[in-house]
């Protein structure tokens, strides 16, 4: 039995639903929304890092280069590895060091 939760991206004010067996990133792609850039979808490249602001979730394996334990505890995690357990609110902001190269990411993908 899968539950469905409501995801809210706070910077752009976008909302979409996410089944509990889908990752946050996959739900965004399925909903046709564009608020997080899509990279490898496997926890490896770090492109889809978000800040979860509220809500419960579990995580799949992620590269420690992009998400260490402290980062994971405070909700800075990769959307491709976030599985919601309640409604979630989160923010996506381009990482400062990637801001120059990723300006178009949301539009391209």
């Amino acid at each position: 039995m899968t539950d469905t939760f409501e995801m809210t991206e706070l910077v752009r004010g976008l909302r979409f639903n996410c089944a509990s067996d889908h990752s946050l990133l996959k739900a965004m792609e399925l909903a046709g929304k564009r608020c997080i850039p899509v990279g490898c979808r496997g926890g490896g490249c770090g492109l889809c890092k978000v800040q979860v602001v509220s809500g419960e979730f579990s995580c799949g394996p992620m590269s420690k280069k992009h998400v260490d334990e402290a980062s994971r505890r405070c909700g800075r995690v990769l959307a491709c590895r976030v599985y919601p357990r309640s409604d979630l609110s989160f923010e996506y902001r381009p990482a400062p060091e990637l801001a120059g190269t990723n300006n178009n990411s949301n539009e391209v993908m």
Binding site: G39, L47, T101, S105, V108, M109
Partner: peptide
């Protein structure tokens, strides 16, 4: 160019 092809690396 596809941004992902150029920037997504492990």
């Amino acid at each position: 160019l596809n941004e992902r092809f150029l920037t997504v690396l492990t």
